[in-house]
């Protein structure tokens, strides 16, 4: 899990005055935030508040227009590949290739990391996906695809897991399974950042909830363990 680096105690994610603009539209305004290792953070806010953009900046998918970001104490602008080795990302868009089977999809992504062959079966088992391993991803329901996406993002035992609306559109059973799995992840000391529309569900499990409005942080609440 966590790499034993001199930067380990400096926080997994550090944002300092981060702003993001698309043309004339300001999506994020001077966000400063530190997420220590092992924290489970939830980003709350209405549509367009900037949650997804903030998460994508943490995932090195998007560069900030202004400000500085550090991941594991390092600059992702110059060490993006090193940072991405330690990040698992699930967005509301599936990253699966519909022509490939579930197992082939996991193997495709897994081969970019040092992932043991047994890990694929293990992830399929944890997320109750074994019966679907040989099926093409394109033939799966939304909920199943979301579970495969979760397995894909966690294959390489990332230190930082970023989840964009992981419960959106899921049925009760799948949401429950996913919730239980997130709880078990929390116990491993992994750092989690998740966006959510639903404060009720999020607050039940998180250590900290940040509310965004028009690209700015308007509330930062910490919850006792």
């Amino acid at each position: 899990m966590a790499e034993n680096t001199p930067d380990a105690d400096r926080g997994t994610v550090e944002l300092d005055g981060v702003s993001k603009r698309y043309g004339h539209r300001h999506v994020l305004r001077r966000i400063s935030l530190r997420i220590p290792q092992g924290e489970f953070l939830v980003l709350l806010g209405h549509n367009g508040a900037g949650k997804t953009t903030l998460l994508r900046i943490m995932a090195t998918q998007v560069s900030p227009t202004k400000g500085r970001i550090r991941l594991f104490g390092r600059d992702p602008e110059s060490e993006g590949i090193t940072a991405r080795r330690r990040i698992g990302l699930v967005t509301h868009e599936s990253f699966l290739y519909p022509e490939l089977t579930v197992l082939e999809n996991l193997q495709f992504y897994g081969h970019f990391y040092p992932v043991a062959e047994s890990k694929y079966r293990e992830m399929l088992e944890i997320l109750e996906l074994q019966p679907y391993a040989g099926l093409r991803a394109g033939s799966l329901s939304f909920g199943l695809r979301r579970r495969v996406d979760m397995a894909r993002a966690l294959l390489h035992d990332p230190d930082l897991v970023l989840l964009d609306e992981p419960f959106a559109g899921l049925d009760e059973r799948t949401a429950h399974l996913l919730g239980e799995y997130l709880d078990s992840l929390k116990e491993t000391g992994i750092t989690l950042a998740m966006t959510s529309h639903s404060p009720k569900r999020a607050v039940l499990t998180c250590d900290r909830a940040i509310t965004l409005e028009n690209g700015s942080i308007v509330q930062d609440l910490r919850y006792a363990a």
Binding site: A59, Q61, I81, T82, R85, E93, S94
Partner: peptide, 14 residues
């Protein structure tokens, strides 16, 4: 179109 470009960008490769 499929959104998988996000998956490629999340990989530890250049």
């Amino acid at each position: 179109d499929r959104g998988t470009i996000g998956g490629l960008k999340s990989l530890p490769c250049s």
